[in-house]
Design a protein around this nucleic acid. Structure first.
Lengths: 364, 364
DNA sequence: TTGAAAGCGCTACCAA
DNA sequence: TTGGTAGCGCTTTCAA
């Protein structure tokens, strides 16, 4: 069964159709086989003795057309034998859309909480037949980044943090993204928003410390700029909780080193603070250690509250009070993405997705 | 300047060329503009008053052809104005290869060390004009996973862990991957190998503990199956270090919970162990806490050594001895990937990339 | 210096 | 039930 090439005035010498019924010809000279070209659906069709259309129908389980079982089997067998792998780019080119859900990799290393969430989401989206990829940040500005994502023509984009601008949304939408969502502190014009209200984390800690009778409250803020996204709202939340009370809030910048912590602890008594909410459990551990080494008692002299509820908090002595944070289940979110992809064009949806619960242990 | 459509016997009504010189027409009826189609290079050409070829030349900085500066400017301006974003799939379809470097997302959450490495690698590859993407595992078998990766036709694939089989390598190579590398404990036939010899971590700990006079050495192995990749070689390394000596090695399975650690600690005295190498610093912290709570002194009664050199190790009392692990610099590795892409076909390269150094502190 | 056109692999429309 | 084939957006060869 010979496939007749399209009539055309000039055949490119390097791209003529393969001779039918056999492996691709060896290169003419002594060069070792550079890489045997990937089999295409035409190769499968040839081997199965059917047309490319039939191959497509069979392999995509097309319902609009009935194919005999024997043909089905032959096509599948041929595909398996050749190790046929469809070309996602060609498919998306033809279809006008892809099944790709793109997530920019977060700019700062995230904790186990986020990773669990991410894993769940990926699994759930995978079950819905989406391909999930994390795209490495390009390092340039946010608009360049959005452009880079758009080159892959994802059907949905979920951006953690603040790395998306309204222009970025527009670029992505025009590039065929049916759903653009952010997972972060702010809404972005045109995008759906999953708001992670980190203020609530700080509010939770502030309320707790106030209820415990603390009035001069320090808030540890890490120096790393990438963490501002989380740390500043948490700080603001503490302020909100204590607004209108007789308590005061003091900002305590802290680099993640023992020396910095020791220095901060050395100035503690003169600062007069009786409580501290650390950015997270690791910073809390760092500071608590330094405070104890400086002779202060926790919680008698200083109450300490962390955040994220890491395992290490339970291993400290005293056990660390912390704010447990909950993200939405990945499965739920996958369902949302899928719905938005299937019914685009609605108004941007906004929802709060971050839960904050204080876990009181021994340090406060 | 009207672009003449290709002569063809039948025009698809839904896919005719756009009327020249203007934005895409609004949809006929009252439906809100669903999504304005992404501008193509043809749109750019039309707006700039040049051919698509010229657009391609300009935007790709083609050196083989000379384009006047004024044309260059016009094309760039038109592209900017339309918000043109090239279609990566179409490009890779035409070119026969992509600039995509694909990394499967590791199956288990990795620590800060890996994240730093990953970030470096992504930055460095980005500088070399590659697009780096982490592909979410599909959950099915390793061969299905390789197939899923191959659909994207990456030019290089770097697989951490053990999720690649020789068949997977073949699938990827045939799909156009010029470089397939593994980053893990084992070689895989046909792939380049960056060997992470976790035995060395265990050897380092074992040698150290023996030199400190310890003879009955426990090795903590986490229950989580995904961590076997690391934990079993580390255990084997301890055995290697103590082979032929009068020291004994005892395997201590430990789930990452306080209860499990307390139980293990309760049986400690009867076990007669005088040292323990924990899977990593977190497990070391967990166990050390439990041992101390059970009344044992560290290091007098039990020496404890962790691994990964996390910050928390320095915050414990006694300060935790640990094995510091070093991965290759991302920049170096990016250079390797680039070289392999440019000069494919060489023999698979194998190199050890994991450095292990014992950091002796107070716990051993 | 620029333009015309072929064709990469795929899907879906239409005809048989 | 199956086959022919146009065309998605892009690059590149050849011709002008």
């Amino acid at each position: 069964m010979v496939e007749i090439p399209n009539p055309s005035p000039s055949q490119l010498p390097s791209a003529g159709p393969r001779p039918p019924g056999g492996p691709p010809p060896a290169p003419p000279a002594a060069t070792p086989p550079p890489t045997p070209a990937a089999p295409t659906s035409a190769d499968v069709a040839r081997l199965a003795g059917v047309s490319r259309a039939t191959v497509s129908y069979v392999l995509n389980d097309a319902t609009s057309v009935r194919i005999s079982d024997s043909t089905r089997r032959r096509v599948r067998e041929a595909a398996r034998e050749l190790g046929y792998v469809p070309h996602a780019g060609a498919r998306s080119l033809r279809a006008g859309h892809s099944r790709l859900v793109l997530m920019p990799a977060p700019p700062v290393p995230m904790g186990p909480l986020y990773h669990r969430f991410l894993g769940e989401l990926q699994t759930a989206l995978g079950r819905l037949e989406y391909t999930v990829v994390q795209h490495a940040a390009t390092g340039a500005g946010v608009d360049e980044a959005a452009r880079a994502w758009a080159e892959l023509r994802p059907v949905a984009v979920l951006v953690p943090g603040t790395g998306l601008s309204p222009r970025g949304v527009a670029v992505l939408r025009r590039a065929g993204a049916r759903a653009v969502l952010t997972l972060g502190p702010d809404r972005v014009e045109g995008a759906h928003a999953l708001l992670t209200d980190h203020d609530a984390v700080g509010r939770s800690a502030g309320t707790h410390l106030y209820a415990r009778g603390r009035r001069r409250i320090g808030v540890v803020v890490p120096g790393e700029p990438g963490l501002d996204v989380f740390s500043l709202p948490r700080l603001a939340g503490v302020r909100q909780a204590l607004d209108g009370t007789d308590a005061s809030v003091t900002v305590l910048p802290l680099a993640p080193t023992e020396d910095a912590a020791a220095e901060l602890a050395a100035r503690w008594t003169e600062s007069g603070l009786d409580a501290v909410f650390a950015y997270n459990d690791e910073y809390a551990m760092l500071l608590m250690r330094a405070l104890q080494d400086a002779g202060l008692r926790v919680p008698e002299d200083v109450a300490v509250v962390g955040a994220d509820d890491l395992m290490l908090g339970r291993l400290l002595r005293p056990r660390l009070s912390t704010v447990r944070i909950e993200l939405p289940s990945g499965r739920e979110l996958a369902g949302l993405v899928d719905r938005l992809v299937r019914e685009p064009g609605g108004e941007p949806e906004v929802r709060d997705v971050l839960g904050a619960t204080l876990v009181a242990r021994e340090s406060s």
